[in-house]
Design a binder for these strands. Structure first.
Lengths: 136, 136
DNA sequence: TTAATTACAGACTTCACATATCCATGATAG
DNA sequence: CTATCATGGATATGTGAAGTCTGTAATTAA
């Protein structure tokens, strides 16, 4: 039971894009260098973020990936759901079992984590990082 | 990213043992029948619970698994840690990275789920189940 | 129009781990 | 002594993560 490396890459890339200028596209080549991951693999991950509507892409020369719309609102949970999917972490006895007490408690615990992730926005971390770079 | 089936088996087995009489051992054969899992595999899982000190085992005739000590205090987290291990869900850049803001936030979110799991005791669910069986 | 650049899609490989199964061994009650 | 029961190790087997490779489509620059 681990978060995938892909989620890690996605979170760091989003953080990077918010710390950099949000208006012009950045190529996957450039984005991949900071994280020691191959461009083709990172591209697969970023395509998931595109399909989730979190970023947009542009083909051709001077193309790349760019933040989109209300990117200040993007939470950890948005990114995790885009990469890992939205299925529950716990598969209990049978597909739909609303009576199982164990299932209910596990869902409740997962919801607690999700609420924390939903209330944490990438932009806030990017600002904190920028701030700590300006001051010592 | 999923909780293992083994965790599911362990939780249900503990629930079953608390609902039944806690003083006499139950064989893995009997325990496995309720969950459609092979006795040999369930045995491997229960051995983890023994090593974690949550239950005790007795070999030989009339042997089996039995609750132990202050079993009323056993939480979901105790069982999950015994089966899945205690490692963090999120591996970030490098082994020890206390400066990474993303890492910090992920640990914090995981802690929120763990706190919920730590505060949920199996015995309470077993009692609720028993109660709902007595009344309609 | 051509060439260079860039994202995208699919097939494929590799590897780690979950999920078992089987059998030998050891402990214990009757 | 024998039947019963847990434990350990070896061994499949399936699944998903992680990553590579290659062709295709889109777009810009020349």
């Amino acid at each position: 039971m681990k978060y995938s490396k892909a989620t890690n890459y996605a979170l760091h890339t989003m953080m990077h894009m918010m710390a950099a200028s949000p208006d012009k596209p950045i190529g996957v080549q450039s984005l991949s260098e900071a994280q020691r991951v191959s461009p083709t693999y990172l591209s697969k991950i970023l395509t998931k973020l595109v399909k989730a509507g979190l970023i947009e892409s542009a083909s051709g020369a001077n193309g790349g990936y760019r933040l989109k719309g209300r990117y200040e609102d993007i939470s950890f949970l948005d990114i995790i759901h885009a990469v890992e999917g939205t299925a529950s972490l716990f598969d209990c006895c049978g597909s739909v079992n609303s009576e199982c007490l164990i299932h209910q408690e596990m869902l409740s615990a997962e919801a607690a984590m999700e609420e924390k992730l939903r209330n944490t926005r990438i932009i806030d971390l990017a600002k904190r990082l920028e701030h700590s770079h300006r001051h010592g």
